[in-house]
Design a protein around this nucleic acid. Sequence first.
DNA 1: GTTAGAGGCTAAATCGATTAAGCAGCCACA
DNA 2: TGTGGCTGCTTAATCGATTTAGCCTCTAAC
Lengths: 346, 346
Amino acid sequence: MKGISIKDIAKQAGVSPTTVSFVLNGKAKEKRISDQVSKKILKLAAKLKYKPNQLARGLRTGKTKTIGLIVEDIANHFFANVAKIVEEEADKFGYKVLYGSTEDSQVKAKGLLEVLEYRQVDGYIITPTPNLDKEIEQLRHARKPMVLMDRYLPQIPTNYVMVNNFQGAFDAAEYLLKMGYGKIAVVTITSEQIQMKERLNGFSAAMKTHKAPFPRKMLKKIPFTATKEEAVSQIKAFIKDIPGLDAIFFTTNYLGIYGIESLKELGLKIGKDIAVISFDDHDLFRLHTPGITCVAQPIHDIARNLIQVLMNELSQNNHQINQVVLPATLVKRESCTKSVSLTLEK
Amino acid sequence: MKGISIKDIAKQAGVSPTTVSFVLNGKAKEKRISDQVSKKILKLAAKLKYKPNQLARGLRTGKTKTIGLIVEDIANHFFANVAKIVEEEADKFGYKVLYGSTEDSQVKAKGLLEVLEYRQVDGYIITPTPNLDKEIEQLRHARKPMVLMDRYLPQIPTNYVMVNNFQGAFDAAEYLLKMGYGKIAVVTITSEQIQMKERLNGFSAAMKTHKAPFPRKMLKKIPFTATKEEAVSQIKAFIKDIPGLDAIFFTTNYLGIYGIESLKELGLKIGKDIAVISFDDHDLFRLHTPGITCVAQPIHDIARNLIQVLMNELSQNNHQINQVVLPATLVKRESCTKSVSLTLEK
DNA sequence: GTTAGAGGCTAAATCGATTAAGCAGCCACA
DNA sequence: TGTGGCTGCTTAATCGATTTAGCCTCTAAC
């Protein structure tokens, strides 16, 4: 019932476990094991379907071939898709993935990091929560292979892979302006998350570049902790409060979804009464009528880069910092088509 | 740099590693270790922040406190949500989760099972693919703790946790009939997946019960391997081919999504020109205008039961089989409101 | 005074792999 | 004859915990 061990092979081949280990680790040449013995061992291993015990190996080598993936919410479209590719890519290098969701809570993140350490994962992919600086700094100090995703901690020089939030938001704003919208509001979350700040900065910068006004009152921050109902009611109040509002930029996908719900409840027609653009793509945005224009993140590229950077760290002692910023793509749909409808109305 | 081991504690406490192990495993009383020594060890362990090395422990005990989760697609709304709760629930028992997606491919599933075995997971949660009977049977034979989800293999008596597919589909069909629809089509996938068959059976049974016709030509099977574009084009062709069609039941969420896209492209108004109902809920269905009526799976309950059944298996030798079938809920939205709109039209 | 039993702890084997160190045997060359 | 070097393997330590078997010491009982 128990698995085949290296000893079983050794016994059957009439050699020592050491020899078996050498051969199976491809060190036959290096360790001067004869071809004869080599072949015999390989054959036996295949015949017995030998699977090395990862625990024993890990105990000895200190490597578990496991990486920890900490996301904000594995049930969220963006993170779930990243997780999927991460798993596939990691598998190519022989790594398995342990995952966990933080819900953006520092306490949960700390708990996850602790458990992952305890399980001796070889490397970490982390979506940091607020106030996680100390823990990240500790990992960095311990020289643990690690790469941050979705956001980074400005005070700590680490590897990270992210979308270009500034550029994505800049493009979104510029696009709205080009499409003829003048009174544009932004709905974001009250959070110190750096990526949200950068999206806001990108937006502001575009407005400034094009000499469009962007007064304080056009910005609404929804608490991260707000329930769906609270968020929708706040968004509705905010929209009603701005006469002549003709476009809204939502800085993340779930805000966009809440926004759609809010506008629906207010009886405003997206694309006609008001333009909508959101960060992150979503099935919902694609299939909504009208389709919702959005700033899409290159999910595949993000996941692939995450693994690449991590594998790079894992395979060498070269502690060069890799900071990858990938371009966002503006996906144009019908939610921002004032000029088109104007044309049609003529 | 290395972690604190049991030896370090032993040395500092002036006792043997054995004693430390006994105390830390709560066997102080049983092994007659004095309170004095016990306390000293516990204090030291806390002070040094001792974390037992799971590899060493696992090697000795044969338990890794890890479970393997095999889903069809971790990026899919249903599986991602189940995965999230599974992770949370497992954590409560001190277990971590390794995951992988099969894409419903037997080859990938076999690969995943192999890797999980290799990593000595203690138990499995498996969404079986077609033709996985042999592998599942092997696991069963090896008395590995295991529970299937989403679907089961009729030939093999195993634990499973599923939604009541028959009842869910039955309710959907009955509801459509009650709402006054007569010409109802079904779009499903060409797959031997038992849950899809049961959904179809439930639907047929309801039609039969209510003496409604359900001829063969009202059923469309889309190949599981079809790309989105292929699926949409097939669904469009199917719909165009049936004059007087007034409602469609999609047997799974992504077919529902493709269906919405197809109808959109055909210029048919959901809820007005045609009713739509889908298995599985989704943000998209909730926020679509009009909202899409669906048969929702009790995701929380499913995940909780999965862990409960698995923990049950893990904690005892009692090999009683647990087969949990949970009720589906019909979530009524505006996509099936013919009678209402008829009322309004009067 | 000897023995039984309990109390309090430890030595050493073990899980299954990796790996540093080393040991024969053989040949070559001085 | 002796030394060095190569070939082809093995011995034994090691990773960090668990666990079996057992060693003292002391008390109590006969």
